[in-house]
Computed example of a mutant assay.
Amino acid sequence: MTNTDLYQTLMNLQCELVAERNLVNPEQITWLQYDILSILQEHASKPTALSKSLGITQAKLSKSFTQLRKLGYIKQTPDIHDHRVAVTEITSGGRTFMNDIAQKHHDLYTQAQKIWSKKEQEQFISAADKLITVLREERLNSEQ
């Protein structure tokens, strides 16, 4: 194995995972929008709580809401206690979208289980976790 083999394999894996994501995400929602929908699957939320939970500004959240509303994935209604504040919740269309993504994740998992032995799965998990940890730490350190 050469350095070129590792480089090429990492690039091919990244391309394949992006292609898989594009199959289930034809509207091209962002990771942030996905995170918003993920939180809203658990419970409706006010914008201030969502922006705090996601660590983003309300302006950035509002921009994501616009696209998610256009797609019909969220709806906003006035809070019953304070009509100046909107409560955001996921719609049935948003739930369907998230369920489709979850199914695609499961399909990928099933494929990996079929082609890799238990030992290969353990090796992949160990190697991927090492790389994920380094990438995440570098990204977090660069944001500070």
Rank of each mutant, 00 (worst) to 15 (best):
L68I: 03
L68F: 09
S64C: 08
R136P: 04
L54W: 01
K130H: 13
K60T: 14
T9F: 11
L10E: 12
T66K: 04
R139E: 09
H83S: 14
Q121I: 02
Y34A: 02
R95M: 09
L61Y: 11
N12A: 15
T91H: 09
W31R: 00
L71S: 08
H105M: 14
T4F: 00
I101Q: 11
I90L: 04
I132M: 09
S38H: 08
S64L: 00
E120D: 11
A44D: 04
Y73N: 02
L68D: 03
R69S: 11
H83M: 14
N22C: 13
S45F: 05
G93P: 00
K75L: 01
S45I: 03
I56V: 08
E138A: 14
K60P: 12
R95Q: 12
E120H: 01
G55T: 02
T9P: 00
P78C: 13
T2F: 00
P47N: 01
L54Y: 00
S142F: 02
F65K: 07
L13S: 14
R95G: 05
L54T: 05
L17R: 05
E122N: 11
I101C: 11
E89H: 08
R21C: 15
K60G: 15
K75Y: 00
M98H: 06
N25Y: 10
Q144P: 00
H83K: 10
T30W: 03
Q111Y: 15
D35N: 08
S64Q: 08
A127C: 12
E42H: 06
L135N: 03
E122I: 07
H105W: 15
A49G: 07
G72H: 07
K119V: 02
D82W: 00
P78V: 15
V24W: 11
T96Y: 04
G93Q: 10
G55E: 04
A128L: 08
A19Y: 04
I132T: 13
T66Q: 05
K70P: 00
L131N: 04
A44T: 05
H43N: 12
L54S: 04
N3S: 06
F97C: 03
S53P: 03
E143D: 04
Q144E: 08
K118F: 05
P78S: 15
I36F: 08
K63C: 06
E122H: 07
K70A: 13
I125G: 10
L13N: 12
Y73K: 02
L40M: 01
Q111K: 05
A49D: 12
S64W: 05
Q41A: 03
P47G: 09
E122A: 13
G93M: 02
